[in-house]
């Protein structure tokens, strides 16, 4: 489990690099979007090894909520406020 988590962490570090170095705002947005999906992988691996379904609850909330954050960022990128 630790080995798999370390590979995922490596991926997360790549995303962090893109957040830090990304020349434009959309690059950073992509990075946080990808990170949100990677978190689901984390939860899945934990669930696989412990056999508890409470980790899947966290995974579902990541899958649903990371989407909302990304949509908000995307709408902001278009230069519009959130309510129009």
């Amino acid at each position: 489990m630790v080995f798999f988590s370390i590979i995922l962490l490596l991926c997360a570090f790549f995303c962090l690099f893109r957040v830090g170095a990304g020349p434009t705002p959309p690059d950073r947005t992509v990075a946080i979007d990808i990170l949100g999906i990677l978190m689901v992988s984390f939860c899945a691996i934990l669930s696989l090894y412990t056999g508890k379904d409470l980790y899947m609850n966290v995974a579902i909330s990541w899958a649903l909520l990371a989407f909302i954050g990304t949509i908000a960022l995307a709408k902001y990128l278009e230069g519009r406020t959130f309510d129009e």
Binding site: T24, P26, D33, F67, T70, I71, A74, K75, Y76, E78
Partner: peptide, 13 residues
């Protein structure tokens, strides 16, 4: 869907 939204947003920006 998120990818579509980001790409459209960045193209429009």
């Amino acid at each position: 869907t998120a990818a579509h939204a980001i790409s459209r947003g960045s193209h429009r920006a």
